[in-house]
Amino acid sequence: MADLHFLANPARFRRLSQRLLPSLSFATVLMLAFGLYLALIQSPPDYQQGDTVRIMFVHVPSAWIAMGGYGLLAALGASLLIWRHPLAALMARAAAPVGAGFCAVCLLTGSLWGRPMWGAYWVWDARLTSMLLLFFLYLGHIALSRAYDEPERGDRAAAILALVGVINLPIIKFSVDWWNTLHQPASVARLGGPSIHTSILVPLLWMAVTLLLLFVLLVLLRTDTEIDRRRLENAEQQA
C-alpha cells in the first residue's frame, strides 16, 4: 500500500516535469546569453569598483539562490516529517547538491571580489562566517541523507538537519545589520528601496531570474533521476 502511494505522486510529478523541461531549458539558455551580455558588456562600470562590480552579477544571485534553496530543503524536510509526502525526500536529495553548488559559487566569487576591494580574500566577519556555515549545512545534508543503508532513514535525518539549519537563514540576512561586519549591508532588499543605480540593478535582477531558472531546471532534472533511482532500488529489492 505504501508503495502505491509512493508511485502515485512522483508519477504525476514526472509527467509534469517532462512537459516543462524542454521549454524551461530553452528559456534558461536564452536568458543566460542575454544576461551575460547585460552583465559583462552593456552595463557600466561602478564609480569606485570599476569592472570588478561585474562579479556581483553572479555573486549576489548565487547567494540568494543558496539561501532560497536551503529554505526549500527545510520546507521539504517539514513536509516529509509532518505529512510524509513521498516526493519531498526525493526532491531534497536532488536539491541539496545544487544548492551547495550555488553556495560554493557565492563564496568563491565573493573571495575573488574581496581581494582587490577589501584587501583580503577572507575575513571571519558575521556575514562570511554564517554563509560558510550554510555551505557546511548543505554538505551535512548531502552526507546525512546518504549515511544509512535504508534511504528512508537518511531522508529523515537530513530533514531534521534541514529544519534545524533554517535558523541560520535570518542570521545570514541580518548579520550585516546586527553586528559590525566588513561585508556591506543589503543594497536591494532594504527599507527605502535599492541603493543600486538602475543601470546596474537591471542586469543584477535579470541574472537573478536566470540563475533561479537554472536552479529550478537542475532540481527538476535531478528529481526525475531520483524517482527513477528509487523505483529501480525498489524493483531490485522485490526481485
Partner: peptide, 18 residues
C-alpha cells in the same frame, strides 16, 4: 598592522556619481 577597505552599499556608474 593591517588595513582593509570597507565598501558601502551604493553602486552607480561614474557619470551618476559625478
Amino acid at each position: 598592522r593591517e588595513v582593509l577597505a570597507k565598501h558601502d552599499e551604493n553602486y552607480m556608474p561614474p557619470e551618476v556619481a559625478k
